[in-house]
Simulated scan of single mutants.
Amino acid sequence: EKEAALKDADARSMFLDPSTAPMSVRIRWDLLSASYVGLANHAHDVGVVRCDTALHSGQSIPYFEVLLELEEDVDHAQALAPIDVSVGLVSKHFPQNWHIGTAKTSYGYRGVDGCTVSCHLPSASADSAPTTTEAPFGSIIRSGDVIGCGLRLPSREVFFTRNGENQGLAFRLESSAEGLFPAVGLHQRHVKATFRFCGSSPRDAGFAFCPDELVEEQQRDERAQIDAQHINRAHVKLLVQEYLRSQGYAETLKTFSEEAKELDGDADEAAGLECERTAEKAAPSSYSSPG
């Protein structure tokens, strides 16, 4: 079983990195799941586990998911209670014992209250102090929830999903998204996190939310923006003429210019007629009512 798990890990492009995990976390042989085995008795004994490689920038929308659940049997009240976890993106040298979003550079979704939390440098200056922010965002995280995190490139927008539902924009990164690693922070006994990473096809990754839907939405938005742009006929004509001239298509340039001139004349005539009609409608009537 151990050998099969390691072979499966070798076939994947992303897996958990045991070398970065603290003593409070136990990573399973499949290199996809981890459990918290610490005491959880103070704020800085969180167990952070991250991937061995940064979130892939080669994908249209880099994305991963984490299933969070309690390993022990729980009653109804415990099942509805929030669990002390954080999910998100961290830098390579993020501390092993702090929740995501509480130390630079990191961006997280906090389970106990559903807030987003981030800590980052506000500018490229080395003298700048890290800025920590938090804001209400979504639902609390309960046992059995699947939390997803992704990046919309090139806008550098970080979004989260919960149980297959997009929770919306959480952060807009001020700098490059390079060097950010998928991670989870665990701070509750018997909590287990199981990662799902995107392979060659997001639809085959077993995701609760398919990022392909966002790709299609993004393409529709881009097409709508293009369609909404006014195209100046004169600019298009000059662009085509310049291309034909630079490529040495003299005869084609001559024919195009002559036909474009005729079309411009027809367009000007049509515009003139329309102006005359508009003027006639706007002119005051010569009819006067009897006094």
Results as ranks from 00 to 15, higher is better:
Phe256Cys: 05
Phe64His: 01
Phe160Cys: 03
Gly164Ser: 04
Val184Gln: 05
Arg245Ala: 14
Phe64Ser: 02
Val158Asn: 08
Ala282Phe: 11
Leu273Asn: 09
Thr252Ala: 14
Asn163Lys: 10
Leu273Phe: 11
Leu55Met: 10
Gly199Asn: 06
Thr252Ile: 07
Ala250Ile: 14
Ala228Lys: 07
Ser155Asn: 09
Asp113Thr: 08
Ala11Met: 10
Ser176Lys: 06
Thr278Met: 07
Ala283Ser: 15
Pro182Met: 01
Ser139Val: 01
Phe137Ser: 04
Gly114Ile: 07
Gln229Thr: 14
Arg28Phe: 14
Asp268Lys: 12
Cys149Ile: 07
Ser285Gly: 09
Thr161Trp: 02
Asp52Trp: 08
Ser200Gly: 14
Leu39Gln: 15
Leu238Val: 08
Phe160Lys: 03
Gln167Trp: 03
Asp212Pro: 04
Pro211Trp: 00
Glu165Tyr: 14
Ala267Lys: 03
Tyr36Ala: 06
Phe181Arg: 03
Arg189Cys: 12
Ser246Cys: 08
Lys237Met: 09
Tyr107Ala: 04
Ala270His: 07
Thr161Cys: 11
Leu253Pro: 01
Ala34Asp: 06
Ala81Arg: 11
Glu1Leu: 10
Asp10Ser: 12
Glu72Asp: 13
Asn41Cys: 15
Leu180Met: 12
Leu31Ser: 05
Leu186Ser: 02
Pro211His: 06
Gln241Val: 07
Cys275Asp: 13
Phe256Val: 05
Ser57Glu: 11
Ser246Gly: 09
Ala103Arg: 15
Leu273Ser: 02
Thr161Pro: 04
Glu174Ala: 09
Tyr63Leu: 02
Leu32Trp: 00
Thr133Asn: 12
Ala170Asn: 02
Asp17Gly: 05
Pro136Arg: 10
Tyr287Glu: 10
Arg196Gln: 12
Asp264Gln: 14
Arg203Tyr: 13
Leu214Asp: 02
Arg223Gln: 13
Leu16Met: 12
Pro136Val: 11
Thr102Ala: 07
Pro82Ile: 10
Thr105Gln: 11
Leu244Glu: 00
Ser24Thr: 15
Arg156His: 02
Arg277Cys: 06
Lys192Gly: 03
Thr53Phe: 06
His42Asp: 14
Lys254Asp: 07
Leu151Asn: 03
Val240Lys: 04
His44Gly: 06
Ala234Lys: 13
Ile100Pro: 03
Thr102Arg: 05
Asp221Ser: 12
Arg28Gly: 00
Cys198Ser: 09
Pro182His: 00
Thr131Pro: 00
Glu65Asn: 05
Ile147Thr: 04
Ala54Lys: 06
Leu273Tyr: 06
Gln167Leu: 12
Leu151Cys: 06
Cys210Phe: 12
Leu39Tyr: 14
Leu273Thr: 00
Gln218Leu: 11
Leu153Lys: 03
Thr194His: 04
Arg172Cys: 08
Asn166Phe: 13
Leu263Lys: 12
Leu173Gln: 02
Phe197Ile: 06
Ala170Gln: 05
Gly185Asn: 04
Arg172Leu: 02
Tyr63Phe: 13
Arg220Asn: 01
Tyr287Ala: 14
Asn41Phe: 14
Gln59Tyr: 07
Gly138Met: 00
Val191Thr: 08
Ala250Asn: 09
Arg152Asp: 00
Gly206His: 09
Val74Ser: 07
Tyr107Glu: 03
Ala9Asp: 03
Ser257Leu: 10
Leu6Asp: 10
His56Lys: 10
Arg233Thr: 10
Phe171Tyr: 05
Ser128Asp: 15
Thr278Leu: 08
Arg233His: 13
Gly265Ser: 09
Asn232Val: 13
Pro122Lys: 08
Asn232Ala: 14
Glu242Arg: 11
Ala40Met: 11
Pro290Val: 07
Phe159Met: 03
Ala224Pro: 00
Asn41Asp: 15
Ala270Arg: 13
